[in-house]
């Protein structure tokens, strides 16, 4: 287990360092010097170089990477280039909104996808089976912002059932939930079908396995066989798909937030990009990467928890 944790943490750090390096490099690649862009065309060379110095842009790339990481480790994600406030507070205020959306989408995707998939596997070729197949094929490829705009037009503008903009900040919990409905649906729509298809496929595979036949040979009820024996194994590949898909979910959340005007990380990064407020962009993207890496690690843990064979591989010393 220790070995496993160590490995997890090492790969976590490697991904973070890599991501920060790419971020820093991107700032370099953007046409025009960040400092002179910020200060406008009439800034004096002295002012530009002073800003460059204070933003650390005069340092070599690797030093900037190290500095950023060092500061980040101490909770300092940089200084807002426009307002001069620390970025950390701004970013942290945006995080809950994004997390609510992303986790809401995960919960909805699994909460609906799993039972639909089980049902589809129980009756292959049935109505549920065909519907999920249609949703999966038709909607996983439709960009979520298209769905978002459609939902917005229908439910908020025409029907007026849901709020048009914002995250219900400063209002009660129910209002926040109300604001969450459409964005969550937009993000998770394709995923519901996709998860249902994956659950169906892996469940059908598992139902053909010898140990399921054993369970039946001992008179276990169909319910027990399906929900206790088959689903335990069928869920494993679905979890690993989720691990890969979390990046997609977070990415979609960022897009959808912008459309719904939710004050989350997506909206923050988007407006900072427009203002060329690079420290905020950097910090925002960094936090997204951290979220991604952490959720992936959690998925790996769930994976190991579900399958004792994998657990064993980490517990013991890489024997074979």
């Amino acid at each position: 287990m220790f070995r496993y944790m160590l490995w997890q943490i090492a790969s976590l750090i490697a991904v973070l360092v890599g991501a920060v390096a790419v971020l820093v490099m991107l700032t370099d690649l953007i046409p025009g010097d960040a400092a002179s862009v910020l200060l406008g065309s009439r800034a004096t060379p002295d002012a530009v170089s002073a800003l460059r110095h204070s933003m650390g842009l005069d340092l070599p790339a690797y030093q900037r990477v190290a500095r950023f990481l060092w500061n980040a480790a101490q909770g300092n994600l940089g200084t807002d280039a426009i307002s001069g406030h620390p970025v950390t507070g701004t970013v942290l205020r945006a995080v809950p909104n994004t997390l609510m959306l992303a986790f809401g989408a995960i919960v909805v995707s699994i909460g609906l996808g799993l039972p639909l998939g089980v049902h589809a596997a129980e009756k292959p070729g049935g109505v549920v089976d065909r519907c999920t197949a249609f949703i999966a094929v038709g909607l996983i490829s439709t960009p979520s912002f298209v769905i978002a705009i459609l939902l917005l037009l229908v439910f908020s503008v025409r029907l007026g059932w849901t709020p048009v903009l914002g995250g219900g900040e400063g209002e009660g919990f129910l209002s926040r939930l109300h604001h969450l409905i459409l964005p969550v649906v937009a993000v998770s729509f394709g995923w519901i079908g996709y998860i249902a298809r994956q659950v169906r496929a892996s469940l059908l595979d598992v139902l053909g396995q010898a140990y399921i036949r054993t369970a039946r040979a001992y008179g276990l009820s169909n319910r027990t066989v399906l929900y206790k024996y088959a689903l335990k194994v069928a869920i494993i590949p679905v979890v690993s798909i989720l691990g890969v898909g979390i990046g997609d979910l977070i990415g979609k959340s960022v897009f959808v937030e912008t459309i719904f005007g939710r004050p989350g990380l997506g909206a923050l990064i988007n407006s900072a990009l427009r203002d060329r407020n690079y420290p905020v962009v950097q910090a925002g993207v960094f936090v997204v990467v951290v979220l991604f890496v952490v959720t992936n690690a959690v998925v790996d843990l769930i994976y190991a928890w579900l399958d004792p064979r994998i657990r064993e591989r980490f517990f013991r010393h890489g024997d074979q």
Binding site: Q209, A210, Y211, T214, A217, K232, V233, P308, R309
Partner: peptide, 14 residues
């Protein structure tokens, strides 16, 4: 009751 050929797969793995 039944005993199967392949004891490797006849028991539930998890």
């Amino acid at each position: 009751a039944m005993v199967f050929q392949d004891p490797m797969n006849a028991l539930h793995p998890v």
